[in-house]
Write a protein that binds this DNA or RNA. Structure first.
Length: 835
RNA sequence: GCUGCUGUAGCUCAGUGGUAGAGCGCAUCCUUGGUAAGGCUGAGGUCGAGAGUUCAAUUCUCUCCAGCAGCACCA
């Protein structure tokens, strides 16, 4: 064995060996238990960043561990390759988006390979491969035929300069993020997926996801936003009627006014003959919608002069147009109960409207005044006619029942979730496979004509969708009547591409999207790992697609990801110069307690530890550190220190320490001696405890704990005297670190003379009998304070422990002749003398 | 405002109803043919604050404080 481990030549050598042995190609026909380990596939932006390295290292350790514990593992990798950055790059660099994308994929694949990930590259694909998106088009048509896809006029953000629709996130302060043009609301015919049909399923399905973080489930629950209440109709004084929705029908007797949104038809009608109302509506529209603005925005209203008749009391309630009522939730109109809703309370206070108590802690408090704010809590109904004395829950049911029997309202469930608009007026996406015919309407492209591919000869540098202005692409004959027709020129939201890619990883027939049998063998994904930023959209869409495909009978699994893990970010310190510009960590140094700029000597502000980003200059390039320290040290660092779900602060000393530990293990491994003899019982126990603990930690994704165990084991083995037991411990340690430091493990395994690859070796079994110590240390306390310890054999009887404790000189001194009132003996743990 | 998570050594984190731990960092010493390094030894903790339960609380319960994150005029 050489004296140092040299990653620069060992890493590549073992990576090639794994390739040649096809170690990580998944066999769908294997009889072993199957395990599908998946990390969220990357967008091919050009370079792997450190967050990818952390994400994929975690999945890799689990995948390698699963291989070693006898599983047939599917651990694939691919590319979420459609999207806007490719179009932007095309504009900036005058290259075709496809060329740019595939070049990035080639580069990033090389980077991933240098990290030694145990990936099945035979199943690699990019979502921009016509083969992949062709199957996606087929699935889209299937969903259309099942009634889960429809078209509807919908208001979109339209950038008049770039001639495109923008996502909400791309509109900043009302302007297009790139053009800076004022964004217009435009009505366009858009494609939608009926995710709302699955709202209840997606909500109740969360309960079955035992191995998902509560945080993510809660976020999805909020997003789906189920609320139950009463929708009912007010008769208005102008002869019309108005529907309102409330989740608090129990407070209906406390309603003192009615309010509609500025965009509500009732408000529009009032504005027709009333300039003042018109001006008020305009003012409402100007209001911002950010959280901060909402926090401080004053409640404003306009009294229409119309009144609404209360269904129970017959009272005439004034009807306001109010800025805090939203058109797109419920019916866009509310009954306002100032006593029990803070917004209504603020409004009523401002406009001098009655504030009536209808819920109180008990009947005696029926006329208790309000303490300056609304009371939203539970209690009993008061001042409320026939529901007086009922609990809030009883009253809700009673009011709904009465409304239904009298025919002026009904119990209703309202969802915050909206149908998913998937139309994008973009080039670099999956073409929506439909044809518009003047005679036949919207006709799906016949499946034998799929894929509908993107034309290559496009000029993307001028604004607008190149598919629209392409000379020939959109002109086709109607598949139904044969007449002249036009292709749909919208492409699909890229979230569609990532909503079913795991199925394509599991099964890749040429003639259909996937094979249901094969999918059944692999799905659901046993462990999915990715960033928390996808907690809602991607994970909800993927759950929806899976359920939709089950609904139309294509697969038999309802939830795609049995277990989800959201890993933390990699962070780094930030530094700012006096002029506010960011400095990289290489440009600064610490002098005493202050930071200074190395070049100029000027003082520098050490900023927060933040997510690595180019703009803040606190990035570390994976390639550079792999070249410097080797893949194993980098992988080890990604796993050590922080728990995987928390942020990991990058540090120079940390990676150096990891590099040293790799060498330290190498020296330890070089002590392996097949001919050593002699038993070391104590070492054996430590070894078997470590085997069990490391395995448990990896299965629980507690990688930092597994790392700590290995540090501990390495110290113990290092200090042990040579023996057959020590050699066994050294060889076993090679296997224990193999999932985390696979290159070092292979090199040592090979140098020690073992056959085969460490990556394919069996995970060392542990002997449960060796997990318990045969000697234990007993604490001896006097009045709960530790006075002495005793080392005794395990399982010693209580009375023997007691007499041993009393015999202790230190204990006698502490007792100091006092009378012992009680003795507490916990076998194998302690003796406590109470005096 | 609502919801969730986190407070243990200088830093990053394990852990436990009964003796407070690891890595890094720091200090001392040794090695100077493992050397842009290796090793020995060591210092360092009111386990966020307070109260309760208990023979015994860092651990269980409650209250509070601080930090982080998500959601939010959702009727």
């Amino acid at each position: 064995m050489s004296e140092k481990f040299d990653p620069s030549q060992a890493d590549g050598r073992w990576q090639r060996a794994w390739d040649q042995a096809q170690c990580f190609a998944a066999d769908s026909n294997s009889t072993r238990p199957k395990s599908f380990v998946l990390e969220m596939f990357p967008y091919p932006s050009g370079r792997i960043h450190i967050g990818h390295v952390r994400n994929y290292t975690m999945g890799d350790v689990l995948a390698r561990y699963k291989v070693m514990t006898g599983h047939e593992v599917l651990h694939p990798m691919g590319w979420d390759a459609f999207g806007m950055p490719a179009e932007n790059a095309a504009i900036e660099r005058k290259v075709h988006p496809g060329e740019w994308t595939y070049q990035n994929i080639a580069n990033m694949k090389e980077q991933l390979k240098r990290l030694g990930f145990a990936l099945d590259w035979t199943r690699e694909f990019a979502t921009c491969d016509p083969e992949y998106y062709g199957h996606e088009q087929a699935l889209f048509i299937d969903l259309f035929e099942a009634g889960l896809v429809y078209r509807k006029e919908s208001a979109v953000n339209w950038d008049p300069v770039d001639q495109t629709v923008l996502a909400n996130e791309q509109v900043i302060d009302g302007r297009g993020w790139r053009s800076g043009a004022l964004v217009e609301k435009r009505k366009l015919s858009q494609w939608f997926l009926k995710i709302t049909d699955f709202a209840q399923e997606l909500l109740s399905g969360l309960d079955e996801l035992k191995d998902w973080p509560d945080k993510v489930k809660l976020m999805q629950e909020n997003w789906i936003g189920k609320s139950q209440g009463l929708q009912f109709t007010f008769s208005l004084s102008d002869g019309e009627s108005l529907d309102v929705y409330t989740t608090r029908p129990d407070t209906i007797f406390g309603a003192s006014f009615v309010a509609v949104a500025a965009d509500h038809p009732v408000a529009q009608k009032v504005a027709e003959g009333n300039a003042e109302a018109q001006a008020f509506i305009e003012k409402c529209r100007e209001g911002g919608t950010t959280a901060a603005e909402l926090e401080t925005a004053e409640k404003l209203g306009f009294n229409t002069g119309i009144t609404a008749r209360h269904p129970f009391t017959g009272q005439d309630l004034p009807l306001f147009i109010a800025n805090f009522v939203l058109m797109d939730y419920g019916t866009g109109a509310i009954m306002a109960v100032p006593g029990h809703d803070q917004r209504d309370f603020d409004f009523a206070t401002k406009y001098g409207l009655p504030i009536i108590r209808v819920v109180a802690a008990n009947a005696a408090d029926a006329d208790k005044p309000f303490a300056g704010e609304a009371e939203a809590g539970d209690g009993v109904c008061v001042n409320s006619g026939f529901i007086d004395g009922m609990s809030v829950a009883e009253a809700k049911a009673a009011v709904i029942a009465r409304a239904e029997s009298e025919g002026w309202g009904e119990g209703k469930t309202v969802w915050r979730l909206r149908d998913w608009g998937v139309s994008r007026q973009r080039y670099w996406g999956t073409p929506i496979p439909f044809i518009h015919c003047g005679k036949c309407g919207v006709v799906p492209v016949p499946k034998d004509q799929l894929p509908v591919t993107l034309p290559e000869d496009v000029d993307i540098s001028i604004p607008g969708n190149p598919l629209v202005r392409h000379p020939t692409w959109k002109h086709v004959n109607c598949p139904s009547c044969g007449g002249e027709a036009e292709r749909e020129t919208d492409t699909l939201d890229t979230f569609v591409d990532s909503s079913w890619y795991f199925l394509r990883f599991a099964s890749q027939p040429a003639d259909r999207p996937f094979d249901p049998q094969e999918v059944a063998g692999w799905m659901p994904v046993q462990q999915y790992i990715g960033g928390i930023e996808h907690a809602i959209l991607h994970l909800l869409y993927a759950r929806f697609w899976t359920r939709a495909l089950k609904h139309i009978g294509q697969i038999d699994v309802a939830e795609p990801f049995a277990s989800l893990f959201t890993q933390g970010m990699v962070t780094h310190e930030t530094y700012k110069a006096g002029d506010g510009s960011w400095l990289s960590p290489q440009e600064v140094k610490k002098e005493g307690d202050d930071w200074i700029h190395i070049e100029s000597g000027a003082p520098v502000t050490a900023g927060r530890v933040e997510k690595m980003s180019k703009s803040k200059k606190n990035v570390v390039d994976p390639d550079e550190i792999v070249a410097q320290y080797g893949a194993d040290a980098v992988r080890w660092f990604m796993l050590s220190d922080s728990p995987p779900e928390r942020d990991l602060p990058w540090s120079e000393s940390g990676i150096e320490g990891c590099g040293r530990f790799v060498q330290r293990l190498w020296r330890l491994f070089s002590l392996y001696d097949a001919g050593a003899s002699g038993e070391d019982e104590a070492l054996k126990r430590k070894l078997h405890q470590a085997i069990a603990a490391v395995g448990e930690d990896i299965e629980a994704l507690a990688f930092n704990k597994a790392v700590a165990r290995i540090y501990e084991l390495a110290s113990i083995v290092d200090k042990a005297a040579p023996s057959a037991s020590r050699s066994e411990a050294i060889a076993t340690t090679m296997l224990l670190v193999s999932p985390m430091m696979p290159h070092l493990a292979e090199e040592a395994w090979h140098a020690a003379g073992f056959e085969g690859l460490a990556a394919q070796a069996e995970w060392p079994p542990h002997d449960p009998a060796l997990l318990v110590e045969d000697e234990v240390t007993i604490a001896v306390q006097v009045k709960g304070k530790l006075r002495d310890t005793l080392t005794v054999s395990k399982g010693l009887a209580k009375d023997e422990l007691e007499s041993l404790a009393l015999a202790s000189e230190k204990v006698q001194r502490a007792v100091d002749g006092a009378q012992i009132r009680k003795v507490i003996v916990v076998p194998d743990r302690l003796v406590n003398l109470v005096i």
